[in-house]
Write a protein that binds this DNA or RNA. Sequence first.
DNA 1: ATAACCTGGATACTAGATATCCAGATTAGA
DNA 2: TCTAATCTGGATATCTAGTATCCAGGTTAT
Lengths: 157, 157
Amino acid sequence: MGEGVEWALHSCVNLAWAGPDRAVSAARLAAWHDLPTAYLNKQLQALARAGIVTSAPGPRGGFRLARPLADISLMDVVAAVEGPEEAFRCAEIRQQGPGGGPAASYAAECAVAQAMGRAELAWRRELAAQSLDDVRQQAERQAPDAPRQLRDWLASR
Amino acid sequence: MGEGVEWALHSCVNLAWAGPDRAVSAARLAAWHDLPTAYLNKQLQALARAGIVTSAPGPRGGFRLARPLADISLMDVVAAVEGPEEAFRCAEIRQQGPGGGPAASYAAECAVAQAMGRAELAWRRELAAQSLDDVRQQAERQAPDAPRQLRDWLASR
DNA sequence: ATAACCTGGATACTAGATATCCAGATTAGA
DNA sequence: TCTAATCTGGATATCTAGTATCCAGGTTAT
Ligand code: SF4
Ligand code: SF4
């Protein structure tokens, strides 16, 4: 699990707090949490390609949310940043060595891979069930003046 | 997800097929699927430390299952091989930069981390719900003579 | 026209996973 | 008792994927 996921999630919540009128540049989003600007920019580009945020060049440009937080699930962000690969990669070892005859060659996905696939599906379902708005609400409960702090800081630039 | 997990899972099923009387050396288990002997040995050591298999040195030594396959869940094996670390590691970025004041410093685990934790819990639960005996049964359905092949090959050594 | 900004490719750096090696310790069997 | 097979565990090397930086474009507000 790359830490780009965490950056992307926090950035989305920050964009929501900044409001829909104001576009925020990658440089500012990065500075807010002291992250490497160029690298965070890559994650934001991935979010843009996935249609989660929109991007605009030029002065007063930057990123803003493409849709309300309630319509963005954690799964959307994870898929956008981490790519579509499964965590468990089948290397087909059962077909190597003396054990792997042609008998097993044409069989379907083996039992191990299926079991791991079911577990990963449960993980995805749970991520898909939680929206970024849920996250935002709880974050505001823990730090009620975080949104105002961010807006003030953005305004002072 | 390291591929040692896959090796360990297949090795456990192979040990079950070999039977409880015969201990199988790491070298033979590795040769069966053409895996690097020394490295597979490390995964088997991890399984031994976790109490999933027992090990015995000396001639006629090797590994055997510590308990029936039905009492070993996929989660047991994954935890033994991959360690206890969570896939999502919280880097506490919210406390870095201008955004992280002392206000948030003492707050509990943030909303993002909690949400990811819930998803990972669902994954673990699904893994814990599936026993290695389920896997064995389906594997035998796909390749009914795999157990006999393995026993024959082991006997011819 | 200028400066602020995104895009995307090329490149370097780094940490972790993969793989090998060796010097003990243990035990079955001759 | 001696030998050979085997596990144990630390040290080390290699490889891969994640992390990070840079630059040469292209776009747009002022
Ligand atoms: S399908 Fe089964 S044997 Fe093949 S790589 Fe996946 S887990 Fe291993
Ligand atoms: S607790 Fe929240 S802010 Fe801190 S590292 Fe985890 S996800 Fe990021």
